[in-house]
Design a protein around this nucleic acid. Structure first.
Lengths: 354, 354
DNA sequence: CTGAAAGCGCTTACAG
DNA sequence: CTGAAAGCGCTTACAG
């Protein structure tokens, strides 16, 4: 039973440094050529059923795992998926990573993280170098950098498969995992209207961000339908950061008459709004109703727990990885499911006083 | 000047698919063997200054970048660093990633993320497979999985370089980036005492977690010094989660007399404590002073902003990567700097009433 | 359906 | 200080 029965005595003393089995070992065990082993590994249909079983048995017995580096070198590409993002929100990043890994686990692919700075003048060169050097099997782009069409054009030129996650369909289905943010924000507007609010204001996202536009239009679209139009001073632009939420809140809460309800285009800015409200002695939701967007853990940890629009980022990450792998293995271009952002009602909304 | 002057006319029409230059191209350009180019790439001292310059000039001119896959295959290891974690806190994960990448950027190494489940029966096998398959250049372990000595022993056996991030020196300096959590928690205790609190309670971390012990002992150590000993019912165990903070708070705020100050061993549980306090109509800090630990963004976004102990995770991540790379390139074993958790005073602490 | 040869882009002994 | 040969563990044409 021992595999060293035939070796010289002195060789038995030192435990054989059991080298990982290679494709050659499997070929020998199964009595086929290494090329045939390769065919089995890669799921080629040009292998007889009997041969395939013999090879698979040898693989199982030896615990053989193909070396991704060697495969990659021969394939001229790696088994690495890059995650490129400039999103400031830690929750979004981590949860999207979990989502992608949900799909990658058990596959031969690994996830390499690549945070970037959209403002950097070397952004394009850096990403090009990253993609080329690692010969990435594909990349997933998170918003807002996912909205950068020029960057995506470069990826296309490089022949790097890519999937964009965003708040609207910016690209062909094969390259897109989109949420419909308008549905959830329309629900938010309807919720405030149903509670009886008339003095409504909005903190939007940064200029030029597609998500900012989608959320604003979804919210205002519903108000329009009900015959309400927000005056320009009731729409204040934020930067998706806590600090920008504070600044926007200071302007909105100084309005006369003061808004009784404010929709913030993300949870971070809603937290800033809470601070300003509390500093001014306002109670939430008695004096001010607040709705956020994202449904990060922060939303449920604030006090009172924040009514917000849930953005299904984990599912979207999983879909992005799915698209990348599917379109790799098969030729058919599959599309990701349609995702909808939906309102989650907690405790930060109530009817206006009086 | 054109590099296709000598090619047949019909070849000039199709733009030459400019293949990435390889070590062979550089060898040809510099008129040396590829082995010599390899020596230059790897910083060998056995190259004459003149030859080195010629090779470097060719590299610069051609934009040559060595293929990490091919290098890895020949080296029998990859240029991938794994980040292994089971930490539930998104901020901790993302910020440590930034820290590690601070050091990796510009190097030839990439960061591969590997969240894991400490409860999984296949944890060891999964990590072993990950490390072996990818022939990782090294791994960084985040707490609490970094405290798992058996896992680290396995990594050692596999010959996988590793650095552990934790709240105490669990290992030799070359494998350790440790914070001293006792300093910050002692400061927290002193702060509460100085404010005049007598009824003090603690929410600790999970049983068996080294960080939980360090923080508890740091806090109670300072109380002891001042002649105060907490009764067992004033120390409630939490699980580092928001929900466990809620549960612990419910017990502590039911005590008679009610504590006027509570130290929570992380920010997440402090958020849970806030909720229970508010539900009971208590004001922070007037009726209850609260101190957390970590100084995640959540701490500054809660209301009132949380007094907490700052855990310098970004710096620690950078140090971990530094250790891994240094101990890779040189033989000398360097140690990471000593990190100290320190108290950050915000608005959740005040003198007790009366 | 199967295989022998050559190659992916590098490095390790081994010479000199 | 420099190089020719062999090899890392796979796959791509090319045969048959």
């Amino acid at each position: 039973m021992s595999d060293s029965d035939l070796s010289a005595p002195q060789e038995r003393t030192a435990p054989v440094p059991k080298r990982r089995p290679t494709i050659n070992d499997i070929a020998r065990m199964a009595e086929v050529s290494k090329k045939t082993v390769s065919r089995v590994i890669n799921g080629s249909s040009l292998v007889s059923e009997e041969t395939r079983q013999r090879v698979n048995a040898a693989i199982a017995e030896s615990g053989f795992v193909p070396d991704p580096q060697a495969r990659g070198l021969a394939f001229r590409r790696s088994f690495l998926i890059g995650l490129i993002y400039d999103n400031p929100n830690a929750q979004t990043i981590v949860i999207s990573q979990y989502g992608i890994l949900d799909r990658l686990r058990g596959s031969e692919f690994e996830l390499v993280v690549y945070p970037c700075d959209r403002g950097s003048p070397s952004l394009f060169n850096d990403i090009r170098a990253f993609v080329e050097r690692q010969k990435l099997a594909g990349v997933v782009l998170l918003p807002p950098v996912s909205e950068n069409d020029a960057l995506v054009a470069m990826l296309r030129e490089l022949g790097c498969p890519h999937v964009r996650i965003a708040s609207a369909a910016l690209d062909e289905p094969a390259h897109m995992v989109a949420s419909n943010d308008r549905i959830g924000t329309a629900q938010a507007a309807a919720h405030l209207l149903d509670l009886g609010h008339k003095e409504i204001a909005v903190i939007t996202g940064p200029e030029g961000y597609r998500s900012a536009r989608e959320r604003l239009e979804g919210f205002c679209g519903e108000l329009d339908k009900r015959g309400i139009t927000l005056s320009p001073d009731h729409i204040v632009r934020g930067g998706y950061t806590f600090e920008s939420g504070v600044a926007a809140a200071e302007r909105l809460l100084s309005l006369e008459p003061r808004p009784t309800a404010i929709f913030s285009s993300n949870d971070e800015m809603a937290a800033g709004l809470y601070h300003v409200a509390y500093l001014r002695g306002l109670r939430i939701p008695e004096d001010l109703s607040v709705i956020g967007f994202d449904d990060t853990p922060l939303a449920s940890r604030m006090w009172p727990p924040l009514t917000t629009v849930r953005w299904p980022i984990r599912d979207m990450g999983r879909s992005a990885a799915e698209l990348l792998l599917d379109n790799q293995e098969t030729k058919r271009r599959r599309a990701a499911p349609a995702y909808e952002a939906r309102l989650t009602i907690r405790s930060s909304t109530a009817p206006p006083k009086g």
